[in-house]
């Protein structure tokens, strides 16, 4: 704070008592206090002079008002001033007011992580497909802006754990991870000291790969069934995935969208001699069969 030296002496004399760990002290003619404290720290401001006065600690993050006696100490207990930010400390009394600046810094000890992990579900085998961003907070929900190492760990039952250590900048750190080749629920953990935050990333099979069906007679119909449907990494494509069977005969065709059930898709369609039967799932084509019976 500048320009305060021009201020006239105030009702109180300066006496400062710092909490442990407070180094620099700011002093004006009537008010002395630490220039910086850690959030939630106890500290005291002692005043000089005589007579009753009022002490204000004012900032967007917090406001404290105390009655003080000139020459006495205003003790700010631990946890009272806990929101990080810039504050004005103002002392009013019989004379002109005295003002000092006070910076409250975040506590050094991380206590909480805001962990943004995306996506919660993605196909297997995607490079840098998973992202995580972390904001580090202290116990008072102040963003800790001092550099801190954050460990990111992505673990799955079948794959080696992926780990990254990233130093925060302005309280934030981020990383990218690969999805593995195996489906399953992976644990994505952000860790700083003993503070952790976990997200679950579901790795799901990709598109069907090598879609194959067989045809067999079933009375007047033809029974079509796929082999177990898997993606290119060998993961079973989940039940409910739609497989489309198309049977073309003459100038007509028949179509059925069949969800996979217990790993395969099966359907019975009218048997038309010479019909060309094809199978597909999404944009993936499978084999074709000419039904000659």
């Amino acid at each position: 704070m500048t320009g305060l030296s021009a201020m006239m002496c105030c009702a109180a004399m300066v006496l400062v008592s710092l909490a442990a760990g407070q180094a620099a002290m700011a002093q004006s003619s009537g008010l002395t206090l630490p220039s910086s404290i850690a959030a939630g720290s106890a500290f005291s401001i002692q005043t000089s002079g005589s007579g009753a006065g009022t002490l204000y600690i004012v900032g967007p993050g917090q406001v404290i008002k105390r009655d003080v006696q000139g020459g006495g100490a205003a003790f700010i207990s631990a946890g009272s001033l806990h929101n990080a930010g810039q504050y004005l400390v103002i002392l009013t009394g019989n004379g002109p007011s005295e003002t000092q600046a006070l910076t409250v810094t975040p506590a050094a000890q991380p206590a909480a992580l805001s962990f943004l992990a995306k996506p919660s579900r993605l196909p297997v085998g995607l490079s840098d497909g998973i992202t995580g961003a972390v904001y580090v907070f202290d116990a008072y929900q102040n963003l800790i802006t001092a550099p801190e190492p954050v460990n990111f760990e992505l673990s799955s039952p079948a794959q080696p754990e992926q780990t990254r250590t990233v130093i925060t900048r302005n309280g934030a750190a981020w990383t990218e991870m690969n999805s593995t080749a195996h489906q399953g629920n992976d644990k994505f953990v952000a860790r700083i000291g003993s503070v952790t935050s976990m997200r679950v990333v579901e790795q799901v099979p990709g598109d069907p790969c090598g879609l194959q069906m067989t045809a067999s007679p079933a009375g007047s119909e033809v029974k079509l069934a796929t082999a177990p449907v898997r993606d290119c990494s060998g993961n079973a494509v989940p039940d409910g995935t739609v497989v489309t069977f198309t049977e073309a005969y003459g100038n007509s065709q028949s179509t059925v969208d069949v969800p996979i059930k217990r790993g395969i898709a099966a359907v019975e369609m009218p048997a038309h001699p010479g019909a060309l039967i094809s199978v597909a799932s999404g944009v993936v084509m499978g084999n074709q069969i000419r039904w000659e019976r």
Binding site: N251, S252, Q253, T255, V256, V258, P259, K261, V267
Partner: peptide
């Protein structure tokens, strides 16, 4: 729900003069 399954049978493209898809 994956149910119901609807089959489409005898799809046929009918030419002009009254073009349509029937089935």
């Amino acid at each position: 729900s994956a149910d119901p399954v609807i089959a489409i049978d005898n799809e046929h493209l009918n030419p002009v003069p009254d073009p349509s898809l029937t089935g």
